[in-house]
Design a protein around this nucleic acid. Structure first.
Lengths: 275, 275
DNA sequence: CTTGCATTTTTCATATCGTGAAAACGGCTT
DNA sequence: AAGCCGTTTTCACGATATGAAAAATGCAAG
């Protein structure tokens, strides 16, 4: 989506003194800030932590963690529940993080397309992009049915066990594929998960051929997902759009029908992006 | 914002040494961290800034800002676009921020806002969402007056005869409006009810223009209601907030004044949702 | 092609300021 | 009441964040 992760292809005309990328230990970073951000991140993963717990689990002194939290609290990045005496992520963190989406108009443009897709299919519609070898779900429109697939925006998921992930992988050339999967295990989440590279490649071949990817209970038992890639003006797959629902409603015989709607939605979105 | 702002009611049992709240200058915060967060926040507001610009606009030396950015980049909180040489908010900020939503629901977050609204206006405050073409009242903070409007949470009410309903309808585009009203009769509950589609459209036009909706005895004789829409991060109207009271206290001449408070409350709630 | 300017990144010396230990403070438990 | 536990503050020390300036580069102008 946004440049940067293609050093081989992009011209990379860097103004100013070039950064010393070889410096693995990153000596140009601020240690105290990094430690503070570690606490921040840790807190976001395990919400509702007490000061002492937080301190011991991040290997820092309670006094330091306390000061970090109070400082962040001053900006609303974290919140202190005075009743329960627990710390949480604050609303401003949400506001700031959400601005990540504003960078490209992708999410905004996708909104009406997704809504229509949800109405046509009756299933939850999702939008995801690739980030650091994972699928990042950035937006969703929930179905009105009571039984629904729920992926809160901000969720990260492995590429190989996700419809959107596979739709994106299928559009990558071999070098990029290697990089996206580098160091990643093909974890088995269910008995249906794809765990071998050969099997994955074969599946991706199919995805390319028919224009959509299927996640048939590869991540969650009882959930199926049908996804198609969305292209930007450079013909690059920048996102995936999908519907997901319970096996009871999304039967194997429904896939053909649903895939039509998903592909149409992907085409629509591609068109509004200038593909 | 969460629990914390009701010192009169909450017991406020603080374990440990009590914080020195009088210390307005907050001497217990970490200056460097605060400055770093200032850059972080500033960047989120004005995305795509160059280093120098960022430095001068936050009144810090380029070297310092550079180190802050590189540190945050290491955690994915900010991103550097190598082609354009610009800095942006990173995906991890989105992931972390999104976890804020997991903790509390719309209803819980609305609670303090509604309480304040009730105190300001002296009237019962309501929160409602749209479900299946009807308004679902999900939460309420009752006034202390003896004569009070009472909507038990869980109550369903037709959209066209409800302040919240009209506030939500007014934000829909035409297609969605059609669907929300599909198959619904514009039932007359009182002589003041709106029963013709044209009249409703005209009213909605007004609602949009002034930013709030009024239910003037359209559902119950003797009760008036002033509502405003609440938006989520996608700028979609997800809920409505309102005050309702007897005509004796909510006169036509009070509407202007009350609507200010309602709109302010709606704005507050919208803000904590990331709108 | 050369020169100058703008911008980013690194080096370095300095003193700021972040740090942990320990004490102070209260609530909670027995 | 006394002891325990978790939070907040104090304090003295030295790690480290900081800005100035230099280095390294691209870009635009001559």
């Amino acid at each position: 989506m946004v440049s940067q992760d293609n050093p081989p292809s992009e011209p990379r005309r860097a103004r100013g003194r070039p950064r010393d990328w070889s410096d693995k230990t990153a000596q140009n970073t601020i240690k105290s800030l990094d430690r503070a951000m570690e606490v921040f991140e840790f807190l976001s993963e395990h919400q509702g932590k007490a000061l002492t717990t937080l301190a011991s689990e991040t290997d820092q002194s309670p006094a330091t963690v306390y000061r970090i939290l109070v400082t962040l609290e001053g900006r609303g990045l974290v919140e202190f529940d005075a009743v329960e005496q627990l710390w949480h992520i604050g609303p401003r963190a949400f506001v700031i993080g959400a601005r990540f989406l504003r960078r490209t108009s992708l999410v905004e443009r996708a909104r009406p397309v997704m809504r229509r897709l949800m109405e046509q299919t009756g299933e939850t519609a999702n939008l995801g992009i690739e980030r650091g070898g994972q699928v990042l779900f950035v937006s969703q429109v929930e179905t009105e049915a009571t039984i629904r697939a729920f992926f809160p925006p901000g969720t990260l998921s492995p590429m190989h066990a996700s419809g959107i992930g596979k739709a994106l992988l299928a559009e990558m050339d071999d070098a990029r594929l290697q990089r996206a999967l580098a160091g990643k295990e093909l974890t088995a989440f269910t008995p249906y998960s794809i765990t071998h590279l050969d099997a994955l490649r074969a599946d991706l071949e199919q995805v390319r051929a028919r224009g959509y990817a299927v996640d048939a209970e590869e991540r969650n038992i009882g959930m199926r997902c049908i996804a198609a890639p969305v292209f930007d003006i450079h013909q690059e797959a920048v996102a995936g759009i999908s519907v997901s629902g319970p096996t009871s409603r999304v039967g194997l015989e429904d896939i053909e029908r649903l895939s039509e709607a998903v592909r149409a939605a992907a085409r629509d979105l591609t068109a509004t992006l200038g593909g």
